[in-house]
Write a protein that binds this DNA or RNA. Structure first.
Lengths: 142, 142
DNA sequence: TGAATTCCGACCAAACAACTAGGGTATCCA
DNA sequence: TGGATACCCTAGTTGTTTGGTCGGAATTCA
């Protein structure tokens, strides 16, 4: 029941982008330095974030990444799902019906528990936006 | 963000024990057959369930396992934590303070999100007891 | 005794996670 | 135009976890 390091890094990196939103494209190298994350590793994460449409990129000497929506419109759940894929506490809930547990949708006793769990996890993660994250920072740190 | 197969098996096996509660010790081999789980693998799982105090065992020819409390007093969260250990969405939340994220408890922006996530997961899992699981079965299947 | 059962430690193979390496390509600016 | 910078892509490496097996010892009961 763990999130991966990729997700942690992804969220922290996106928080940086949120903080510098409206300052033009922000280079990955700086994020890597600020957050002490391997640049090469971050590249992989940002590939997923970009193909998920959460950010866009600009190449060249003054290039970098930018959020494609305002921080208030990007929530943690978006980032988690972009980096890790859809949240499925047990394989039984994913759509490829190749597992023996789910022959009978009615008969799987535990299924409804896992469904509720999945929904609640999504709820929590979708309830916090990047804006709230950096707003907390501004209030308590700066 | 996945539960392990151990947890799935553990919950299903505990549901069987709940169903045969008050019928004396129930042998692991029968559970393995009913639920189509490797007996040897189940042994590992039941070691954890036993040392966590959720079940007790009786050796010998008519031995087996029994719930140590009524089904209504054992919830899914108990089983998950017994088999997988405490739920910690990110390592940052576990108590060994060896990670770089948590020098400053106040400054970790994302920490409160993960804390809320952890709490909600526990809430969902603690909200369903074995009794409710097998009661659902009795109502809809039998 | 012998069969059925729990208990216990070691072992193993495959998958996964967390990086790392290194080059390729596009773009920008001077 | 040319070099600097940044993004893009493939693949390998290393260590841990997961899921599972094996063999055997201890215990109980008929």
């Amino acid at each position: 029941m763990k999130l991966s390091a990729k997700v942690e890094y992804g969220v922290r990196a996106m928080a940086v982008l949120a903080f510098y939103y409206q300052s033009g494209p922000f280079p990955l190298r700086k994020i890597a330095e600020q957050e002490n994350i391997s640049l090469k590793f971050l590249e992989h994460i940002f590939f997923k974030l970009r193909t998920s449409g959460l950010i866009f990129s600009m190449r060249g000497t003054r290039g970098g990444y930018m959020l494609s929506r305002p921080p208030a419109e990007i929530n943690i759940g978006d980032i988690v799902r972009a980096v890790e894929g859809p949240i499925t506490p047990v394989d039984c809930l994913s759509e490829n019906g190749t597992d023996p547990c789910c022959h009978r949708k009615e008969g799987c006793l535990t299924r409804q528990v896992w469904e509720k769990l999945r929904d609640k996890i999504n709820d929590v993660l979708d309830d916090v936006s990047l804006y709230e994250l950096i707003d907390f920072k501004s209030t308590h740190i700066k």
